[in-house]
């Protein structure tokens, strides 16, 4: 037995509420991040990721309270991403109880920001989120939810972020996000082979086999999914048993 591959449910949070509807029959308030997090914890999630998609600055403070509440009740690692632009944002999340903070656009606009926060807070708590899209024979980084190309090669970028001290890469295929046809395993493999740090595959999960493929074909250290768990199509426990049956080490 060795290190387990991690299964990470991801919750989009807007002004303190879970959006993209989480559907559990026996949950009282599916919009309440604390209830949903507790539920995922009970099902055996290895970590939970919150993505704050709040548009207005006024409402952004609410994610801090969400993290505080969840961290008081759910004792597995919590990652928070979305709108992290300054070292103070990282500090606020860590103080609220987040274990890791995911940085996306801010790293692209100012790569030394990653160096600054890994020096200050440690690599273990800094995740660099990469949104990549296939362009010709390689993958490029896109910002603004996959709308703006940057011309930056995704594999080179991942390598640079690892050099800058990132503790982990959260890699989303913008080609696959929302498609339910599976991860871009070639992308995952290319990045996982290029960096010495763990890589989380994201974007495209529609069935349990996709999670297996992300690990076996993509070489991912962890797999992240949203809708497949939210709509109670499959519980985390089911996903883990399915992966275990195919020879993947998971925490059961």
């Amino acid at each position: 037995m060795g290190l387990a591959k991690r299964i990470i449910p991801c919750l989009d949070v807007d002004a303190g509420r879970v959006v993209k509807g989480v559907k559990f029959v026996d949950i009282r308030d599916a919009g309440d991040p604390v209830e949903v997090a507790r539920r995922y914890n009970d099902e055996g999630a290895d970590e939970i990721t919150f993505l704050d998609i709040t548009a207005t600055a006024d409402d952004r403070e609410t994610i801090v309270h969400v993290v505080e509440e969840v961290a008081s009740e759910v004792f597995i690692p919590l990652t928070v991403g979305g709108g992290i632009r300054k070292a103070e944002d990282v500090l606020r999340m860590l103080n609220a109880g987040a274990d890791k903070v995911a940085i996306n656009s801010a790293a692209v606009f100012n790569p030394s920001f990653v160096k600054e926060v890994t020096d200050r807070f440690g690599s273990q708590c800094i995740v660099v989120a990469i949104d990549a899209k296939r362009v010709g024979d390689h993958w490029e980084i896109f910002t603004h939810g996959g709308r703006k190309p940057t011309g930056i090669d995704a594999v080179e970028w991942a390598r640079k972020m690892a050099d800058f001290g990132a503790g982990e890469i959260l890699l989303t295929s913008m080609d696959r996000d929302g498609t339910k046809i599976g991860f871009d395993n070639n992308l995952t493999r290319a990045v996982a082979a290029a960096v010495p740090i763990p890589v989380i595959a994201s974007g495209g999960v529609g069935e349990l086999q996709h999670l297996v493929d992300g690990v076996k074909l993509g070489g991912a250290d962890a797999v992240l999914a949203a809708s497949i768990f939210h709509f109670a199509e499959h519980s985390i426990g089911e996903a883990k048993r399915f992966m275990a049956d195919q020879g993947i080490e998971v925490r059961l």
């Binding site: 037995m1 060795g2 503790g167 996982a192 740090i197």
Partner: peptide, 21 residues
């Protein structure tokens, strides 16, 4: 040391991050 191989055919990642027995 980062030299040991993992089961995915890639070197074991550092940090050691996650759930181990």
């Amino acid at each position: 040391d980062g030299l040991a191989m993992g089961d995915s055919g890639l070197p074991l990642k550092i940090p050691h991050m996650g759930w181990s027995p």
